[in-house]
Design a protein around this nucleic acid. Structure first.
Lengths: 197, 197, 197, 197
DNA sequence: GATGAATGAGGGTTCATTCAT
DNA sequence: AATGAATGAACCCTCATTCAT
């Protein structure tokens, strides 16, 4: 049970993470100063150290925040009683939804090995593997259920994730296509690689 | 006609760019120091300024080197008298070949807007647009020649480029699949989105 | 109304400016390192950037400090209800007093165009012009009131300022003549150029 | 007797000194790079080291060049069979002529103690003392010959030199007054301090 | 005599981090 | 909980100087 105090702190932490993510996304991790983040929050540099013990921690928790969301969502999808085709469609849509609605957080995740070493890195890579495996699972399920062709699971997953992650490089909230429409289109085209015609 | 001296200097510049790219790829642009690059070349920091007037210039010329190669290759492919299907296959293969054989250079190109401003950025973005247009051209040609389905050109191109660029995130020269095999597999799957069945 | 904190910071800034001026005067602007200044104040190089955002700023504020004093003093003199002769005497004395009591600051002002560009330079030159005009004003007043001969105002002003500024090149606090005496002597001789005999 | 070769070298050295002086005057000693000087002469940095063994030497010889001219001229004036008044007039004119015609060289001489140490500095200061003494000599002669009032020689000399040196701060070859006219005016006013009326 | 290339010592500046208040 | 001030380690870049060719 969390006290009001704890909730307040947690809320503040999240605010900080969002501000940090926004700036990391724009300027890159190294290009961002603690000052930048503090300024965006109308705090002072020093104050942030009360909530996060250093800059790495900021980045690490950004990763965690988004990976937690992603993995939770995938678990739901996997657990649903849908066809593999529908699951994959949903996974694609969920990924794009997250990549666009949480664009900054998502962008921050680029190249963790450039910023972390040791434990944090292991942890993050583990999350990524987990996430990838969910995709593999769906694809495999589709193959077994004869919904999908007999594809090279890993290769197909790489194509999927590549296409999906790339969205955050070009997606523009004010662009001509909404995230929703992009999702539809992507699911449509990408499934052509898989489903029997 | 270039004198021996000019050739020597050009060679040196290329050496420097390769060393820089390798380290940029590993540590990121901001995470790389001029010292790092110099050390890799057994030079002193100061000497590098004889060849490139600052760190930005190093990054910029890495971009140019790889974009020049990419665009040149694409021009060849476009100009060839092949079917659109074959052209797209070749483009996919060429992209993967470059992304894997020149992995470091390729990785360096991530997020130019985080590192450049103004003219350099415009120049780089222009190159990217040009490159993207070649893909569009092939796809369009395929549609007109009835080789491809009537797809949304931009969306398909985005899927293609996403999948292709993502390779450099996971491709491992010592991995179980060679770049060649990956190319084949990718071309195979990706074309399913396009060609009539 | 200034808080204690503000006063403290202002005091610190002034300390820094005085230290900087002392070293600029001895070694010249370019010959002075931020380290030099910091060392004199028992600070670290980095700390100084908390108060002044760069080395230029240090020099600029030295200029401002002394020009403000000079101009304020001149305004007083001009506003006083004395004869032009007395005003000029007072101006001469004031100038020498400042040039000797704030020797370092004064010396720093040499050749602003070698150190500044653009706005700062314009600002400084404007102050100088203002200061020069006060001298012209007094001389002109003297001429109109028939206290002075009908001299070429600008030339006489140049002679005056040249002689006065030069003092800081040779004045020695331990020398045989006090600043006071020098003032007297200078006023005495220089007025001979002007007053009717 | 100097060979053609020696003369050629001497000429080149003088060219270099003039170029150096011009840039020292504009940018200050520390603000000037060997590259700057070389570029102005269409040479390479390295080549200059054939003629002058380092940057200090460049500055030192600038000083010497102008001091030699100044002192030579003063010797002539002193040796002439003119009245003290005329000698002083000539000295004033000579000084201004040099300060304006060799503006750059003249400006270079500012604050030798900021740039030299030890022997070079002693040497330069000695030259300055010598030069100052010539002025003192003329003033003293004027007093003894009853042409001048019984003034404080050193003070008057300081006023004279101050006014004269200051000219190079404001003299503009395209200004409304020629160097010639300035000389006349200055001699006229400055002598008022000295000559009996 | 001239030069291209290299060097290395510094200098200005930035910034993550700390800590007393 | 917050902050102002200080620190020091790095980093980019400059430049006088050297030297083989």
């Amino acid at each position: 049970m969390s006290s009001i105090k704890e909730r307040k702190i947690r809320k503040k932490k999240e605010e900080i993470l969002r501000a940090a993510a926004a700036i990391f996304a724009k300027k890159g991790y190294h290009g961002t100063t603690m000052e930048d983040v503090a300024a965006k929050l109308l705090m002072t540099k020093g104050s942030m150290y009360y909530y996060f013990k250093n800059k790495d921690e900021l980045l690490y928790h950004c990763h965690k925040m988004i990976m937690d969301l992603s993995i939770t969502k995938m678990k739901e999808i996997i657990a649903s009683s849908k066809s593999a085709t529908e699951k994959l469609e949903n996974a694609i849509k969920a990924h794009i939804t997250l990549a666009t609605s949480e664009k900054s957080m998502f962008m921050v995740m680029h190249k963790p090995s450039q910023h972390f070493t040791d434990d944090y890195l292991q942890d993050i890579l583990q999350d990524r593997t987990t996430y990838a495996q969910y995709f593999d699972e769906i694809i495999l399920e589709g193959i077994l259920k004869k919904e999908f062709n007999h594809v090279d699971v890993k290769m197909v997953r790489m194509i999927l994730l590549g296409a999906l992650n790339w969205t955050q490089e070009w997606y523009d909230p004010n662009g001509e296509k909404s995230a929703e429409e992009i999702s539809e289109t992507f699911a449509n085209y990408l499934l052509k690689m898989l489903v029997k015609q």
